[in-house]
Design a protein around this nucleic acid. Structure first.
Lengths: 334, 334
DNA sequence: GAGTAAAATATTAGCGTAAACGATTTCTCA
DNA sequence: TGAGAAATCGTTTACGCTAATATTTTACTC
């Protein structure tokens, strides 16, 4: 089966390749009859332009790179999986394609230098800023997703305000000793959520007690570790977890000590991960709009590709409190 | 910043572009001194071959397509996320790149006709066989991952034997009324697991009772629906779930009726999804080797690209029983 | 040191496409 | 009808690279 090229169509239609190219791309005035005939033949032969030839001459690939830190791939929550598929869906709608790549350090991934992509979506706040800066210097259009950095376009979740609301929810339910736990604070999102937690305490006139803050370790059981070390030294009546896996993990630590949720300790998570509905009791959490982030990031990136010289835009998306049973419902306070 | 091409290097080194190309690709005999000089200059200038030009002439892209049914992206379990990142890691090791695409129906995804990839990994058994066949007819090297079909290379999990073992585990613990639930049986993997369940019953001399089989619906709450409808008409002492999310969901249905796990009903899942450790009690399940599948599929695909005319290979990977607390431990039988 | 073999490098062609430019035909209107 | 404008289409070039072929340089033999 030989490759179907412009030439093949040209021969069949008895015209030159340029005419075929013009007909297919709709450039310049043309005789409607011949255009239709060419389109018909192209359809018949199942023609599709060779991407290599096309991008060689057009200097663009219609590929977008989706970059994520390799760390995240290990992370078992589906956060970036959902974002990835949402980004792909949106790109497909615009006839773009998605290159998926992970980076482990600060070295430039090969797809950049090799001109494999027209732009980049950098997902997550674990990508080293040094890498981001050096990508920016190469003047590749790029958008940060779920991350932000001065001078670079970004679409991200309002973590500070989200954590504020989560904490305020607990305070409204009457809690006075509210703890904060995270797998790690070596992560911008979690730091911001921590900040939101502190602001909420302050706004409600509650003292900040460092004893009520615990860090665990990276990985799925980070929340378990954090919660245990916290319970070893203090006894909060409520816990704000930096994300849902951490919360779920912490819930296991709480129950392992014979404490009840939410009666003894209320728990609120963050992200509205699918697992939130499966914990026992189902987890109250802050919903994060992954697919909305994806759509906005793609739109921004495509705009940036068309028109590169623009001031950086920072799009912040608010979160939404999803009340389940892990804090006691507002109707039946714990 | 102008693009760094072979020509630029050639001019700097005072040789022709062909020599530079040969030096970089290591083809043909060369003066060691000039080769080293060329390599040095290329390094200095940060040269990387333009992928479009390269693949235009070489007729290959060093891109692999990773295809998945759009349905799966909605599915919140991390199964294919882990596989995806494992595939990407393995491809990167071989200096290949990954194109991520989802399909919603049987139409050929554009990346095929446009020559964007050298080969395909088709992940999951939800991809329409019609589509798979038509891809095969285009003679694109491809490997099925977590799926199998006669005449097409595949790497997949031994679902039948896995479910057999899961069921046998329950029977060994003394259970006689063992149920089977799935989100849907409209899926090869789940059908095979169902088959393994039946075979285990038969092998242990237990009758097959259709009353003890329930299907739910696609989506995260499928297990909840299935378990409820099952409990409405029957009362098993143990349940085999087609996968972990289904099991987790079913556990909620069981507890919602005030029944205890594993004392009243034992539960075993499938996949060893990360969430298995977070359920209460932690879920006994069959471990599936995602990253092993990924590595094998990539190896097979790259081999197939180099040497297309080979008989199809079918690589089946066994599962492993992971005993947690949802069945009662073998040491403390329920 | 001439003749030849071998090694090293240069020249050329071509991959499939789009765009610039040029050539031809058709149309418009005085 | 004829001149110019407009429409239509063909030719050429360029994109950056590799492979095939041609040419030069070097090395070697007697």
């Amino acid at each position: 089966m030989k490759k179907i090229t412009l030439k093949a169509i040209a021969e069949r239609a008895g015209v030159s390749v340029a005419t075929v190219s013009r007909a297919l791309n709709g450039r310049g005035p043309m005789d409607e009859a011949t255009r239709e005939q060419i389109l018909r033949i192209a359809e018949e032969l199942g023609y599709a332009p060779d991407m290599a030839a096309r991008s060689l001459v057009l200097r663009r690939t219609e590929n977008i790179g989706f970059l994520i830190h390799a760390l995240q791939s290990l992370s078992p929550h589906t956060f970036y999986g959902e974002i990835l598929t949402a980004v792909e869906r949106e790109l497909r709608r615009h006839r773009y394609h998605l290159h998926f790549a992970t980076v482990e350090d600060e070295t430039l991934p090969p797809l950049i230098k090799e001109n494999r992509v027209d732009g980049l979506i950098l997902a997550g706040c674990d990508l080293p800023p040094v890498l981001i800066r050096s990508l920016k210097e190469r003047r590749i259009p790029l958008v940060l997703l779920d991350n932000h950095l001065l001078g670079i376009d970004s679409v991200f979740t309002d973590n500070v305000n989200g954590a504020f609301q989560a904490t305020a929810h607990l305070i409204r339910l009457g809690h006075r000793r509210v703890a904060f736990i995270a797998e790690t604070l070596d992560n911008l999102s979690f730091q911001e959520r921590f900040e939101g937690y502190r602001q909420a305490l302050e706004a409600h006139g509650l003292p900040f007690d460092p004893e009520l803050v615990a860090e665990g370790e990276r990985g799925f059981e980070g929340g378990f570790v954090a919660m245990n070390s916290l319970l070893d030294r203090a006894r909060p009546t409520a816990v704000v977890a930096a994300n849902d896996p951490t919360a779920a993990s912490a819930m296991r630590a709480i129950r392992a000590r014979g404490l009840r949720i939410p009666e003894d300790i209320a728990v609120v998570g963050f992200d509205d991960d699918p697992l939130a509905v499966h914990t026992d009791p189902p987890l109250t959490t802050m919903r994060v709009f992954r697919s909305k982030m994806a759509v906005l990031a793609v739109a921004r990136l495509l705009d940036l590709i068309q028109n590169p010289e623009q001031p950086a835009l920072h799009i912040r998306i608010e979160t939404q409190l999803i009340v389940r049973q892990s804090c006691g419902s507002p109707l039946t306070p714990s």
